[in-house]
Computed example of a mutant assay.
Amino acid sequence: MRTFAVLTLLAVSLAVAGCTATFRNHGYIPPEEDLQELVVGIDTRASVEDVVGSPTAGGVLEGGNYFYVRSTVRTYGPRRPQVVDRQVLAISFDENGVLSNIESFGLEDGRVVTLSRRVTDSNITNVSFLRQLLGNIGRIGPDFGEG
């Protein structure tokens, strides 16, 4: 009877632990104290990197703006992970590379952006898995074994 009680307690403990939400943090946002050191119109790209660190992402072109992104994702049991917090810090520069603006956005400021998926066609039609696996046997080129 005692073994049954221990096993039941263990099963209940595992079930409760499996339903506990877990949180993961991704990315980096510089602390407010570091941002206070930046002076619009004075600091340059190099001085911004020295003070707040390298950006998470830069602009598309060389010399673009800096973006710092931090997200918190909650996973609850078998449910799909959900982003519960996202902070984006955008640091803009003018054409001379001088700091022109610092903006901060939260998840509540954003909008849902549908990402398009690019799928490359595999160009494999009517070929079984076994044929794909064994298809290269005997195809040894003249440079085999050199190196």
Score class of each variant (00 low, 15 high):
2 R>C: 08
2 R>A: 12
2 R>L: 13
3 T>E: 15
3 T>K: 14
3 T>I: 15
5 A>C: 12
8 T>V: 14
10 L>S: 12
11 A>Q: 03
13 S>M: 15
13 S>F: 13
13 S>I: 13
15 A>N: 06
16 V>Y: 08
16 V>G: 07
17 A>N: 13
17 A>R: 11
19 C>N: 12
20 T>N: 09
21 A>F: 01
23 F>Q: 10
25 N>K: 13
27 G>S: 04
28 Y>E: 02
29 I>M: 03
29 I>F: 03
31 P>R: 08
31 P>I: 06
31 P>G: 08
34 D>S: 12
34 D>W: 05
34 D>M: 08
35 L>M: 06
36 Q>A: 14
38 L>M: 04
38 L>D: 04
39 V>K: 09
40 V>H: 05
41 G>Q: 05
43 D>Y: 01
44 T>E: 00
44 T>W: 05
48 V>T: 04
49 E>T: 09
49 E>Y: 05
50 D>S: 13
50 D>N: 10
50 D>F: 08
51 V>W: 01
53 G>R: 03
53 G>N: 07
53 G>T: 03
53 G>A: 01
54 S>D: 14
58 G>E: 14
62 E>V: 11
62 E>D: 13
62 E>M: 09
66 Y>S: 02
67 F>H: 02
67 F>T: 06
70 R>G: 11
72 T>I: 12
73 V>D: 03
74 R>H: 02
74 R>L: 10
75 T>G: 01
83 V>N: 06
85 D>F: 04
85 D>Q: 10
86 R>D: 12
87 Q>D: 10
88 V>W: 02
88 V>F: 09
88 V>A: 07
90 A>Q: 09
92 S>R: 05
92 S>L: 12
94 D>G: 07
95 E>C: 04
96 N>K: 11
98 V>Y: 04
99 L>F: 01
105 F>K: 09
106 G>I: 06
110 G>L: 07
110 G>W: 02
110 G>N: 04
113 V>S: 09
113 V>M: 12
113 V>Y: 11
114 T>L: 14
114 T>I: 11
115 L>V: 15
115 L>I: 14
116 S>M: 13
116 S>T: 15
117 R>Q: 13
119 V>F: 05
119 V>I: 15
119 V>L: 13
121 D>H: 06
122 S>V: 07
122 S>Y: 00
124 I>P: 00
127 V>P: 00
129 F>S: 01
129 F>A: 03
129 F>V: 01
129 F>N: 00
129 F>I: 00
130 L>C: 08
131 R>K: 13
131 R>E: 12
133 L>R: 09
135 G>V: 01
135 G>E: 08
135 G>L: 01
137 I>Q: 10
138 G>N: 02
139 R>I: 10
140 I>Y: 06
141 G>Q: 11
143 D>K: 10
144 F>P: 03
146 E>Y: 15
147 G>L: 09
147 G>S: 11
